[in-house]
Design a protein around this nucleic acid. Structure first.
Lengths: 242, 242
DNA sequence: GTTGGTTTAAGGTTCAACCAATATGATGAT
DNA sequence: ATCATCATATTGGTTGAACCTTAAACCAAC
C-alpha cells in the first residue's frame, strides 16, 4: 500500500537551523543583527538548548553567523561576501577532486572576459581602487600578505566587472591558487610572479580598451600558469608526507 | 609584548569537526566509510558527546556525512559530487545577492566553451549517455522531474568536457535555473523550453564539430534566457508575499 | 515460512549544572 | 574628580547522565 509512507524524520536541530537560515535569507534578519540568546530560542522553539546549539554551530561553521561570548555577545548575522563559498571548493581541491590544470583552463577562459567587462564598465571611482591595489603590490612582506596583495588585483577587477557571480568564481580560483603558492613556498624562493605584471592589464582597463584588456589578461595568465603546475606537484608531495 | 598571544579560543566542537574533515579530505576516510560511534569518539577525543555531535551535525549539514540510525547505523562519508556546492550558491540567489541577468551572462560565456570542449573530447562511450539524456527529455511528467531531465543535458555535457570545475559551475547555474522554473510554474504553463531544443547541439557534439557546438549552444541559451527574466520576477514576487 | 516480539547498537533529545568571557556599573584610592 | 579595580550579570562553552527512538538481527510461535 502507498498510504502511510515516508514520515521522514528531520532532526530537530535541522529544523531549527532551517528556521534561522530562512530568517536570514528572507531578510528578516540582516547583516549585524543578533539572533536571540540560545536559552530564549530553546524556550521559543520548545526544544532543548542542545538542539539550538547544534543549529547555530552548523550555521556558524558554514559562515552565516559569527558568535561572540559575554554580555552583548551572541550570534550575529555575517555579511554575504563573495569569498564565503571558496572554502568548499578548496576542500574539493585538497581532496584531489580538482587539479591546477583544470583551474588554469577555466581561468584562461573566464578572466579575459572579466577584464573585458571591467574595461567596459570602468569609472573614475573604481580607477583609484584598482590603481591603489597595483601600487600596494610592492609592499607587504610575509609571503601570505604578499600573495594576498597580488591576488587582490584579480578580485577587484572582478568587482569592477559588475557581475557578482564572476566575483565569486574569481575568489574561488584565486583562493586555491593562493593556497598552493603559500603552502609551496620556501624561504628565498622567488614568488610566483613578481610585481608589475599587472601593469599592462591595468593600463588597458583604465584606458577602457576591452579587447586589449582581455588580451593582456590572457598573456598574464599564460605566463605564470606554467609555474603553478610545478608548485602543485610540490604541494601534493608535502601533503602526502604529512 | 607579542609573545603569548592570540590563544584564540577555538570551540571544541570545531576542533573535532576539523579532525574528522581532515581525515576525509586526506583520504584516511573514504566514500562509504563509517566514522566511529559518537560515544567512542567522545571517549577518544576526551570531550563530551555533545561536542562530537555538534561536529558531526555540522559536517552532515555541509554534505560531508550521511547519518543513519539503528545498529549498523552511524555517520558515513558521502561521495564528493559536483552538485554539493550548489546549495551555497542558491542561498546567495535567494538572498538576492545574485540575479538571473548575471547568471545568464555567465552561462552565455561559459556553456559554449563547455560544448566546444565536449565536442572535442567526445568518445563513443559518452555518446550513448548524451543521446539517452536527449531521448529521455520526452518522458517524465511532474514539473520537477521534467525540468531535471532537461537540465541533465547540460550536466552531462559538462561531464563530457572533462573539466570538473566546469561540471561544478554548470551544476550551480542549472540548479538555480531549476529553482526559478519549478517555483515559478503554474499548472498549464508551457515549460520554459520544450523538448528537442538540444538537438542541434547534440548533433554538433556527436559529430565532433567544436565550433558548431559552441554556436548551437549560444543560440539555445539566447533563445530561452529571455523567458527566465520574466520567471524571476514572478519568483521574487511570490517569495516576498510569503 | 511468515508474523510478531525481543534484544541491542547505534543515533536523537532532554535536563541540569557549572565554567569562561566580557560589558557595565559600583567601589574606592589617589 | 579621575582612574583603576572589583563585583555582577549576561551570554556562550562544556560536561555528564539519563532516557527515547530507530532498525537490524535473532528468535519463537503459529
Amino acid at each position: 500500500m502507498e498510504l502511510f509512507q515516508d514520515i521522514s524524520k528531520v532532526p530537530l536541530s535541522k529544523v531549527v537551523m532551517l528556521h534561522i537560515k530562512n530568517a536570514i535569507l528572507s531578510g528578516q534578519l540582516k547583516f549585524k543583527d543578533k539572533i536571540p540568546p540560545e536559552r530564549e530560542l530553546a524556550a521559543g522553539f520548545k526544544v532543548s538548548r542542545n538542539m539550538v546549539r547544534e543549529a547555530i554551530r552548523a550555521l556558524e561553521m558554514a559562515g552565516y553567523l559569527e558568535i561572540r561570548q559575554g554580555p552583548k555577545g551572541g550570534a550575529f548575522v555575517r555579511e554575504f561576501t563573495p569569498d564565503r563559498l571558496s572554502d568548499g571548493f578548496l576542500d574539493y581541491y585538497i581532496a584531489q577532486k580538482l587539479n591546477i590544470k583544470e583551474l588554469n583552463d577555466v581561468r584562461l577562459h573566464i578572466e579575459p572576459e572579466v577584464a573585458r567587462l571591467a574595461a567596459e564598465k570602468m569609472t573614475s571611482d573604481n580607477s583609484h581602487r584598482l590603481q591603489k591595489v597595483v601600487d600596494d603590490e610592492y609592499m607587504a612582506d610575509p609571503i601570505d600578505d604578499r600573495v594576498t596583495n597580488l591576488t587582490d588585483f584579480h578580485r577587484v577587477l572582478a568587482e569592477v566587472s559588475g557581475n557578482y557571480f564572476y566575483e565569486i568564481i574569481i575568489n574561488v580560483l584565486v583562493s586555491i591558487t593562493k593556497e598552493i603558492v603559500v603552502a609551496g613556498y620556501r624561504k628565498g624562493d622567488a614568488v610566483v610572479h613578481g610585481t608589475g605584471q599587472h601593469n599592462e592589464i591595468l593600463e588597458a582597463v583604465l584606458g577602457r580598451k576591452p579587447d586589449r584588456a582581455a588580451e593582456a589578461m590572457r598573456d598574464h595568465l599564460t605566463k605564470f600558469s606554467q609555474g603553478l603546475i610545478g608548485l602543485e606537484k610540490e604541494y601534493r608531495k608535502r601533503m602526502n608526507i604529512k
